[in-house]
Simulated assay, not measured.
Amino acid sequence: MSAETVDSWKTTLPCTRAEAEAIDAADDLAIDAVLMTTEEVEDDVTRWRLDAYSEREPTAAMIAQLRALVPSAADTAPVIEPLTPADWVAMSQDGLEPIAEGRFVVHTSAHPVAPPPGGRAFLIDAGRAFGTGHHATTSGCLAMLDGLADSSFARIIDIGTGTGLLAFAAAHLWPAAEIVATDIDPAAVDVTRENAALNAIPPLDLIVADGALNDAITARAPYDLLIANILAGPLVSMAPEVVAIAAPNATIILAGLLETQRSTVVEAFAACGCTLERMDRRGDWTILHLIAGKTRYVPTTPPDPKGRDGWALDI
Results as ranks from 00 to 15, higher is better:
Asp158Tyr: 00
Glu42Met: 12
Glu277Met: 05
Thr301Ser: 10
Tyr53Asn: 08
Cys15Leu: 07
His111Asn: 15
Cys141Gln: 00
Ala246Asn: 05
Ala239Lys: 08
Ala52Met: 05
Ala73Leu: 06
Thr38Leu: 12
Asp205Gly: 02
Thr59Arg: 00
Thr59Ala: 03
Leu165Ile: 14
Ala177Phe: 10
Ala244Ile: 02
Met279Thr: 11
Trp311Ala: 06
Ile253Trp: 03
Ala22Cys: 04
Leu66Pro: 11
Ala219Thr: 13
Pro58Leu: 09
Leu276Ala: 10
Trp48Lys: 07
Asp158Arg: 02
Ser92Asp: 10
Ile159Lys: 00
Thr163Gly: 05
Ala212Val: 06
Pro14Gly: 07
Leu165Ser: 05
Leu29His: 04
Asn199Met: 11
Thr161Asn: 02
Ala232Met: 08
Ala86Ile: 04
Thr37Trp: 01
Ala271His: 09
Pro186Arg: 14
Glu81Met: 13
Ser72Gln: 05
Asn249Ser: 15
Ala61Phe: 02
Glu259Trp: 13
Glu40Ser: 11
Ala20Thr: 12
Arg220Pro: 01
Ala30Arg: 15
Arg120Cys: 15
Ile159Asp: 00
Ile23Arg: 09
Trp48Thr: 09
Leu66Arg: 09
Leu235His: 01
Ile217Asn: 10
Pro82Ala: 12
Leu206Lys: 03
Ala33Asn: 05
Asp205Val: 03
Met91Gly: 06
Glu19Thr: 11
Leu50Gly: 08
Ile124Ser: 04
Met91Asn: 03
His135Glu: 03
Ser54Ile: 13
Pro82Ser: 10
Pro98Ala: 11
Pro222Ser: 04
Asn195Gly: 08
Arg17Trp: 07
Thr132Asn: 06
Glu40Trp: 11
Ala136Pro: 02
Asp185Lys: 06
Asp314Tyr: 04
Ala100Trp: 00
Glu194Gly: 02
Gly293Ala: 14
Pro299Asn: 11
Glu81Leu: 15
Pro78His: 10
Leu29Asp: 06
Val208Asp: 10
Ala100Arg: 14
Arg308Asn: 13
Gln93His: 15
Val180Cys: 10
Arg278Gly: 08
Ala244Cys: 00
Asp51Gly: 07
Phe122Tyr: 13
Gly119Ala: 03
Ser8Tyr: 12
Val242Lys: 00
Ala246Met: 07
Pro203Met: 00
Ala196Tyr: 07
Val113Glu: 04
Val41Ala: 14
Ala292Ile: 13
Leu213Val: 15
Arg262Lys: 14
Thr275Ser: 15
Ser8Pro: 06
Ser237Lys: 05
Thr12Gln: 15
Asp215Ile: 12
Leu13Trp: 04
Ser263His: 14
Leu165Glu: 09
Gly133Cys: 06
Gly102Leu: 04
Thr138Cys: 02
Met62Pro: 05
Ile253His: 01
Val113His: 00
Lys10Pro: 00
Ala232Gly: 14
Pro299Val: 11
Thr76Lys: 04
Leu258Phe: 03
Asp28Leu: 08
Pro112Ile: 12
Glu178Leu: 13
Trp311Asp: 02
Thr59Gly: 12
Pro85Ala: 07
Val265Arg: 07
Glu21Asn: 12
Asp146His: 11
Thr59Met: 01
Met62Ile: 11
Glu57Ile: 03
Pro248Cys: 08
His289Asn: 14
Val45His: 07
